[in-house]
Every structure is written in structure tokens, then in C-alpha cells.
Design a protein around this nucleic acid. Structure first.
Length: 419
RNA sequence: GGCCCAUUCGUCUAGUGGCCUAGGACACCGCCCUCUCACGGCGGCGGCACGGGUUCGAAUCCCGUAUGGGCCUCCA
């Protein structure tokens, strides 16, 4: 009977949670949920400073935001240090380790090879004679990562180690250690790294890398999950947009590709736009308000809600929202060079429009443009400028409706007298 | 330098010997729609790193080369 699947997400508490780590965690999580297994969260800490505590909080916040959960309490690598030391002593006693300058080194086999069948890369083999006898317990008594990590995996009953491929070269040593300990080996799956546009490891130079930064940029968590899942994995030759549920249902390790992927920010933007447009208006309003609150923008909720139909098809991330609709919440600067004549005429025409709604406003304005013998394209632009202060805005008639008659006329008149 | 890994349009990828004169998506370009911007529709540009094999037949298998990356810490 096959053991139940159990994986672990093992971040280091070094500041923010890197989006590349999240991608690896997405694979772990998707795999576990798909298999009906467990997904643990283990912090690979070597101390317990205040910084670590903060980083641990942030890691959990970021994971929760993306929608990744974990089973059981968060565990800490440091908590098993005693047990690791005991095992090191056993290794010492059996002659599988030896002391060196106060530290304990693992004794690698000197001949033959270590190999394993990697779930994403296939057969990988190393020659034992080339593996260095690595330190498993430092001279100050602290066990090292390459020792505690496999030890914790045994202790936790991890069945699948899904991690970045920067760990490939650690794997043969960890396997030898596990064998010396008489433990069963987990399945290894080394997933490719994520690069920036220049092919180098993704870093701040390329754009946002902290999970928090994507949240602050107004990306939806469902976008992030979908996008990240597609970095190195695909369902078929054409499916791109997949819900959390579909992702869980369809994910498989053998469809993870072995080569590194470049993080394409433009595609992320596009995908977020797709998700934004697919939201129900109420959901959109809710998420938007939450975003604004997080950004410290306290525009009236009622009015924010009212803008949803004007912006939902126009922006691809919430961070574009404030500038796009600012004219509805704050005074604008009257642009200098615009056609005051048209603005004045528009003000006069709009004064008597009943009711004050987009349809009536459009009718009035189109009639005016006709009479003036202007092209809609050229005639509406100065009006837009006068009312929104920008050459790019939500639909003009809807904007006027929302702005209200008084304020609209005020801005139009102001622009009319300016010129 | 040693070891390990990778290599299909600019990017993410489909492809597991014939269905491939290589499919989709993002980006880009053009046209249409249009009050701006978007959305949407239509069309276009563009790729199997290179060289040898194996085979009737190779993007797919093998070997080299090149390029890129990772690791080689008493870091994780």
C-alpha cells in the first residue's frame, strides 16, 4: 500500500518571501492537494532572532494571501537540532562520520555511484568519490542544513521532496546520509529556477520579487497562483486560465519541464486583466476597496463602488486605479491649452439635460457635436480634458454622470473661460 | 577549474520517431470596432543552438561542440 503523500515547503526566514520560492511552494501545494496528501510548512531557521520571527509572520501572510495553506503547526528546523545531534553521534559510533577540528563530518562512500530517479528530470547520477565529506555538525555544536534537512524529512515522514534545482548537487550527499541512517528515501523532484529577462536568477533588478510587492501592485492572488503554476508546468497545448480548483485537479509532476523559465511581467499583467474582467462587479468592488484600504487611500466606498463599471474593462491591475479615476474624487488641474469654445458650448448644452445620466448626456453631446460640424473624436477630447484633466479616461458620458451636473458644469465653464 | 543540469518563436509552452511545410498564449506590428484608453474581432511577424550519427523517416533517440545555469561554505 503506497504511503500517503506528504510534502513540505521549507523557506528560509531571510526577509521577504521570494516569488520564486512561492512558485516551488505552489508546486508542492498543488501536488499535495491533488494527491489528497499533506503539505507542511517548515522554517529552515538557524537562530531565533526577532528578525526571524518577523520573517516567519511575513512568510505566512504571503502564503495565505496567495491561497496556499498548510497542515499542522508551522515547524522549525532549529527544533530538531537535538535529535540531529543524536543521530550524528550514531553515525560517529558506526564509523559513518568522524571528528574534524571539533566538527563532525559525514564519511562519503569512496566508490560506486549514487543515483536517483528525479520526478522531473529523470535519472541523475553522481560518483561517490567526488562527493566531499561534508560537515554535519559544526564545531559549536549546531547541525548544518545538509544534515538537518534530510533528517527532518525522515522525522516528518516526507514522501516527496519538491524543491528548486539548486539543490540537485546537495541531493547525492543527502541520499548517502539517509542511507547511512537506514532511512527510506523520499521521491525527489527538482523544479527549474525562475530567471529574469537576462537569464540570470530573478532579482529586484528585473522587477518585483517579494510576494508582498505583487500584492501592493494590485495583482489578484488567483492570478499569481495561475501564473506561477504555468512557470514550468502546463496542462496541455492551449489551456492558460485555470481556477485554483482546476489547477489542483490537473497538476502533475511529470508535466513539469526541466528547463528554467523567465518571469514575464507583461504576461502577468495580461493575466491579471483577464481575472479582473472576469470578476463579478461586487467581487471587484470588494477587492478594489480592500486594495485601496491597504494602500491608505480612503475614498468614499459608495463612489468607489460606482466607478467599477467604468474601470473594470480598462485597467489590468489595481495600482492603475487611483490615477485613472482621481478626477472623480479630487479637484483637477485645469489644462492650459484646450478648445474653450467647445467646453463652453458643452456646459450650456448640458445645463438642461434631464435626467442626468450617461444616455441623456451622450445624446446631448452628440447633438451638439453634430451642430458644430465637428468630429466626435476631436470634439470630445477637449471636454474629456476639461472634466478629467487627462487625455486618457474612463468613458466620457459615464464619467460626467458620476461626477454630477454641478461639478461637471463647473469644470467645463472653468475650462471655457480659461481659454 | 571539477561535477551536475538545461537548450522549440523575444517570453511561457505543446510536441515522447511519421498526425509538424512545428500548434497555442503573452509581447510586437497592421486592419476593424470606437469619445480617449482598454476590451473584442481579423491578419501578420517569428522558433526546433550547432555538428555528426542511428533510422525508410528525428524537434523527438545517441555522441560531441557551443551557450546558459546550479553546486563545489563549519550558508540555507
Amino acid at each position: 500500500m503506497p504511503a500517503d503523500v506528504k510534502v513540505r515547503m521549507a523557506p528560509s526566514p531571510t526577509g521577504f518571501l521570494h516569488i520564486g520560492s512561492v512558485r516551488t511552494f505552489v508546486f508542492n501545494w498543488l501536488f499535495a492537494r491533488q494527491q489528497g496528501g499533506e503539505c507542511l510548512l517548515r522554517i529552515e531557521n538557524t537562530d531565533t532572532s526577532r528578525e526571524v520571527a518577523e520573517a516567519v509572520d511575513q512568510i505566512q501572510d504571503s502564503l495565505r494571501w496567495i491561497g496556499i495553506d498548510w497542515d499542522g503547526p508551522v515547524s522549525f528546523q532549529l527544533d530538531t537540532a537535538d535529535r540531529a545531534r543524536e543521530l550524528a553521534q550514531e553515525l560517529l559510533a558506526k564509523g559513518d562520520a568522524y571528528e574534524d577540528e571539533g566538527a563532525i563530518r559525514f564519511r562519503q562512500p569512496t566508490e560506486g555511484t549514487v543515483s536517483w530517479h528525479d520526478a522531473v528530470r529523470g535519472e541523475i547520477e553522481f560518483r561517490n568519490e567526488l562527493l566531499p565529506d561534508l560537515v554535519i555538525v559544526r564545531s559549536d555544536g549546531r547541525p548544518t542544513y545538509n544534515f538537518v534537512s534530510p533528517v527532518d524529512d525522515i522525522l516528518d515522514g516526507i514522501t516527496h521532496v519538491i524543491r528548486g534545482d539548486d539543490h540537485v548537487s546537495n541531493t547525492p550527499s543527502q541520499i548517502n546520509i539517509l542511507r547511512a541512517l537506514g532511512a527510506e528515501l523520499p521521491v525527489y523532484a527538482h523544479v527549474p529556477m525562475i530567471n529574469g529577462a537576462d537569464g540570470k536568477k530573478l532579482s529586484k533588478r528585473h522587477g518585483a520579487v517579494a510576494t508582498e510587492a505583487f500584492r501592493d501592485d494590485g495583482y489578484l492572488p488567483q492570478t499569481m497562483m495561475n501564473f506561477l503554476a504555468l512557470l514550468g508546468w502546463s496542462y496541455d497545448d492551449k489551456t492558460t486560465i485555470m481556477s485554483r480548483h482546476e489547477l489542483i485537479e490537473r497538476f502533475s509532476l511529470d508535466r513539469v519541464v526541466p528547463s528554467p523559465a523567465t518571469f514575464d511581467y507583461k504576461k502577468l499583467d495580461w493575466m491579471n486583466g483577464v481575472y479582473l474582467r472576469n470578476l463579478q462587479p461586487e467581487e471587484y468592488a470588494h477587492d478594489l476597496r480592500r486594495f485601496l484600504a491597504e494602500q491608505g487611500i480612503d475614498w468614499p466606498a459608495e463612489r468607489v463602488n460606482a466607478t467599477v463599471p467604468l474601470v473594470q474593462e480598462k485597467i489590468e491591475k489595481f495600482s492603475q486605479y487611483p490615477d485613472f479615476v482621481r478626477f472623480l474624487f479630487e479637484d483637477i488641474e485645469v489644462p492650459a491649452d484646450l478648445d474653450g469654445r467647445i467646453c463652453r458650448a458643452a456646459a450650456e448644452r448640458l445645463a438642461g439635460v434631464e435626467p442626468w445620466d450617461a444616455a441623456a448626456i451622450e445624446e446631448a453631446l452628440r447633438g451638439l457635436v453634430d451642430e458644430l460640424g465637428e468630429k466626435p473624436r476631436t470634439a470630445f477630447q477637449p471636454i474629456r480634458l476639461a472634466v478629467t484633466g487627462s487625455k486618457v479616461s474612463p468613458g466620457l458620458f459615464e464619467s460626467l454622470e458620476l461626477l454630477g451636473r454641478d461639478e461637471s458644469l463647473r469644470r467645463l465653464s472653468a475650462a471655457g473661460t480659461e481659454a
